[in-house]
């Protein structure tokens, strides 16, 4: 079993191959995170590649005293996906697909069309933070502790955001069930 911090130090000392086990540890998590933000397999793979290659190039700048490796890596992934939407849509304010207006022809680039249609109305009412946390917990099955570490937040604040998100969704769901014409 590899020790994460020793692998990072090893990498920073010039043994770059030590990055491979770090990749093994995080590949699924980062891919899942990016997939849930894009709902498009090839785009998620593309962004996953970019995230890890950026991390590999920048590993020497990672400072364990400032943040966990997980926080650092997820931050690169988040910036990468924001850059992707910014580049492809020339818009500054989008950091996942749920922010895109449903009137746009977004479904062409969505693999999980059924999932998207089913809950797009609901997820789009949440803040990006709340969406991120709920998809990580519900869809990626990450623990609140893991999510907190990935996002660089405390576990209690992550739980609080999740609850607020659920409450907001509950309200939205109620309206959708009883007043579907509003949507």
């Amino acid at each position: 079993m590899h020790n994460e911090s020793s692998l990072i130090l090893d990498c920073q000392h010039g043994n770059r191959e030590s990055f491979a086990p770090l990749y093994d540890m995080y590949a699924q998590k980062i891919y899942g995170f990016l997939f849930h933000k894009t709902l498009h397999r090839e785009t998620a793979e593309d962004l996953t590649s970019e995230t890890f290659l950026k991390a590999l190039e920048k590993i020497e700048t990672y400072n364990a005293q400032k943040a966990s490796f997980s926080t650092w890596l997820f931050q690169i992934a988040r910036n990468t996906v924001i850059d992707y939407f910014r580049t492809s849509r020339h818009t500054d304010d989008i950091d996942d697909i749920w922010d895109i207006d449903s009137g746009e022809d977004v479904l062409e680039k969505v693999d999980a069309k059924i999932a998207y249609k089913k809950i797009q109305h609901h997820l789009s009412v949440l803040s990006a933070d709340q969406r991120e946390i709920l998809t990580m917990r519900f869809w990626q099955d990450m623990s609140y502790a893991e999510i907190a570490q990935a996002l660089g937040k405390t576990e209690s604040s992550v739980k609080m955001a999740a609850c607020r998100g659920v409450k907001k969704l509950k309200k939205e769901l109620f309206l959708f069930l009883f007043f579907p014409f509003l949507f």
Partner: peptide, 14 residues
């Protein structure tokens, strides 16, 4: 609601 949310989970296996 949670079950709905879970059932709409897209396949995100790498």
């Amino acid at each position: 609601f949670i079950e709905d949310f879970l059932s709409s989970r897209p396949d995100s296996q790498i």
